[in-house]
Design a protein around this nucleic acid. Structure first.
Lengths: 325, 325
DNA sequence: CCGCCTTGTGTAACCGGTTACACATAACTT
DNA sequence: AAGTTATGTGTAACCGGTTACACAAGGCGG
C-alpha cells in the first residue's frame, strides 16, 4: 500500500505538504505542488479514506436501510439515492431490514461504527431509542414523521384516489386488499381507501394480507377470489399483488376490465408489462430517492432553511385494468 | 462519542485492558472483566470500526459492484450476497456501474480507499489493470474468468437449452433476440443458442438489441413483430424482454403458445406472474449471490483448497408460453 | 532600516483503536 | 528456596491521514 509518507519521500517534502496539495488548502509553492503531483501520479497514490475519516470524524459514506431490495419498488429508491449521492462523492452502505427490528438496529449500529455521515431509512420504528440517541443527520424515506425530515408520497391520498377511481368507474362490489399491518405506508393507503369507500355508496370487503412477496402474492389472489367470488373491483395493496390478481382472474376466466377492474399501487416498472397493463397509483420512487439524498446532503452541509419534509405527488396511471369511464 | 478511553476511565483500568476484554484475547482477570463489561454497558459503548480498521488494515466491509440494481435479476444476487455475508458480520458497500468503465473504476477505487476486505463484481472488464493491481480477494459474479474465482451459471448451456426447447416443441421460424454486445453473459447465451439453432433444421433470424431496460423492451418487441411477422418461436434475451414480447404478441392477437412460443432467460420473480406465465431458463440468482459470498469469505480467511469457480446449473422452467410437447 | 504581514514548509500531536513489550505478582517445579 | 512459568495489567508505539503551531524568508509601508 502506498501511503502519504511514500509520496512525501518521493517528492522530497513533508507529509504535511502532500496533505496540503491533496486538500488544496494552506500555502503551497507552485513548483512544490508540481513535484508532489508528479509523485502522486507516479506512485499511483490515492489517500486512505479510513485514516482520513478517523481524524476528521466524518466520511464519504452514508447508510441506506431498506426493507427488502428484492421488492421491485425499492431498487428504484436505492438508485435515486445512489445517483444523487454519488454526484457529491458519497458511497452507500446498504442494508435490508426485512421490516425486522433487530436487523434494523444492527445495521444502524454498524453504520455509526463506520462513521457514516448520515442515514436514510425506510423504517417502521422511528420511535426506537436508537434513532433518538443518534447524533446524525437522518432522513426517512417512504415514511412520514413529525420528528425527522422525511420524503414520502401521500399514501392517504393515494389510497383515496385508488378507491375513488374504482367507484367512479362503476365498480359496485369492491374488495380492498390490506397490506401487512406493521408496514406503515401500507396502512396509510389502506386508511385512505377506507375513507373514500366509506363515504361512497358501495359495498366493499377487506382482505387482510401479511406480506408483499412474489411467492405469497398468488396465494392472496386465490384467497381473494375464493372468498369474494363476485367482486368487480379490486384495490390491490401494491403492484405485485395487483399483478398476481390479474393473473388469477384471467385463469378463472374473468374479463378485465369489463367484469373486473383492478388497481395497483406503486407503479413498478413491470406494471407496464403485465397483460392487461395494470392501472395503478404511481409513486415517483426514483424521485423520492433523489429527494431524500438531496435533503440529507443539505442537512449534512448544515444549510439553513432546509425543508423538514418533502411530499411528492401520487398520480393515477390509467392503463388497461380499469374502464374508460 | 464515547471512546475506549471513557470506558477505561470509568472502569478504572487502561485502554489496553478494555481492548483485551473487547477482543477476548490476552489475559484479563475475572473481576476486571466484569468491571469493564459493566462500564461498557453503562456507557453504551461500541467500538469505532474506523479506528480498528486503520490499525488492522482490514474491515468488515466488502464492496459489491453490480450493473444495475433496477434490473430485477440483480436484487436477488445482492440479497444472496448480503444474507450470506451478514452472517459473518460483514456489511456491503454497493455500487451500480451501468456497465460503464469509468463508474466501475471509480467504485473500485473507493472500495480500496475504504479498506474493504474483498470485492464481488459483475464486470465486463476484468482485463483492466485495476483488477490486476488490486491486492484484494476478488470474486466475479454472473461472469466467467480464467484469472479470478467466479460464480456463474452456464450461459452457453442455457442458451442452447432455450433454443433446443423451442426446436423440440416444433417451432419452425425462430427469432433469436441478441442482448447488448458489451454484456458478456448475454453473448454467451446467444452463442449457445446460435450453436443449437445451427445444428438443427430450422430457419431462424436474429434481432439485435442494445439494452435490457423496461423502457426499451417494448420497443424491441414491436420491432420484432414488425420485422419477423410470421415467427413462431422467440428466444428472448432475458425475462424482461420476454415479458414485453408476450405483451406485444397478445396485443397483436397472437395465440400463445399455439401460434407463438416464447422462452425467456433468468427466471426473475415476476415471470411467474406474467400472463401467460413465461417459460424460461432459470438462473439461481439468490444462490449465485450466496455462493459468491461464501467463496469470497473463504478466500479472505485464506482457507486452502478453495474452488476457483462455482458453476451453478441452469434449468428449464416450463410454464405457459411453450407447448406441452 | 525596522517591524509586520504574507507565503511556504516542517514537526509533532491527534483521531480511536490494537498490540508489542515491560513489569509485577502468583503458582508451579525440582 | 530458587528458578521458571503462567497470569494480569499498564505504557507507548503504531496505523495513515490532518492540522495547530513554529519558524524562516521575502515583500512592503513608513
Amino acid at each position: 500500500m502506498v501511503t502519504i509518507k511514500d509520496v512525501a519521500q518521493e517528492a522530497g517534502v513533508s507529509v504535511a505538504t502532500v496533505s496540503r496539495v491533496l486538500n488544496n488548502n494552506g500555502y503551497v509553492g507552485a513548483d512544490t505542488r508540481k513535484k508532489v503531483m508528479k509523485s502522486i501520479a507516479e506512485l499511483n497514490y490515492s489517500p486512505n479514506e479510513v485514516a482520513r475519516s478517523l481524524y476528521k470524524r466524518e466520511s464519504r459514506i452514508i447508510g441506506l436501510l431498506l426493507p427488502d431490495i428484492t421488492n421491485p419498488f425499492f431498487p428504484q429508491l436505492a438508485r435515486g439515492v445512489e445517483d444523487e449521492l454519488s454526484r457529491s462523492g458519497f458511497r452507500l452502505l446498504l442494508g435490508n431490514s426485512d421490516e425486522n427490528v433487530e436487523k434494523e438496529l444492527d445495521y444502524i449500529q454498524t453504520f455509526v461504527q463506520n462513521n457514516v455521515m448520515g442515514i436514510i431509512t425506510a423504517t417502521n420504528h422511528v420511535d426506537y431509542d436508537i434513532y433518538e440517541a443518534l447524533n446524525l443527520p437522518l432522513v426517512l424515506l417512504d415514511r412520514t414523521s413529525e420528528e425527522y425530515p422525511a420524503v414520502y408520497a401521500d399514501g392517504r391520498k393515494g389510497g383515496r384516489l385508488a378507491a375513488q377511481t374504482l367507484i367512479d368507474k362503476g365498480a359496485e362490489r369492491i374488495t380492498l386488499v390490506k397490506g401487512p399491518a406493521h408496514v406503515k405506508p401500507a396502512q396509510e393507503r389502506f386508511q385512505g381507501a377506507i375513507g373514500a369507500l366509506s363515504e361512497a355508496d358501495v359495498d366493499f370487503s377487506v382482505l387482510s394480507t401479511t406480506s408483499y412477496s412474489f411467492e405469497e402474492a398468488q396465494g392472496w389472489a386465490e384467497e381473494l377470489f375464493d372468498k369474494y367470488v363476485d367482486t368487480d373491483g379490486v384495490i390491490a395493496s401494491n403492484d405485485i399483488v395487483g399483478i398476481a390478481i390479474i393473473h388469477e382472474a384471467l385463469k378463472r376466466g374473468k374479463k378485465i376490465p369489463d367484469e373486473l377492474q383492478i388497481i395497483g399501487y406503486d407503479d413498478i416498472p413491470q406494471s407496464r408489462l403485465s397483460y392487461p397493463t395494470l392501472s395503478t397509483i404511481r409513486q415517483p420512487a426514483y424521485e423520492m430517492g433523489r429527494e431524500a439524498a438531496q435533503l440529507l446532503l443539505k442537512t449534512i452541509k448544515k444549510e439553513s432553511g432546509v425543508e423538514r419534509t418533502v411530499q411528492l405527488p401520487v398520480e393515477l396511471v390509467e392503463r388497461k385494468t380499469t374502464r374508460k369511464e
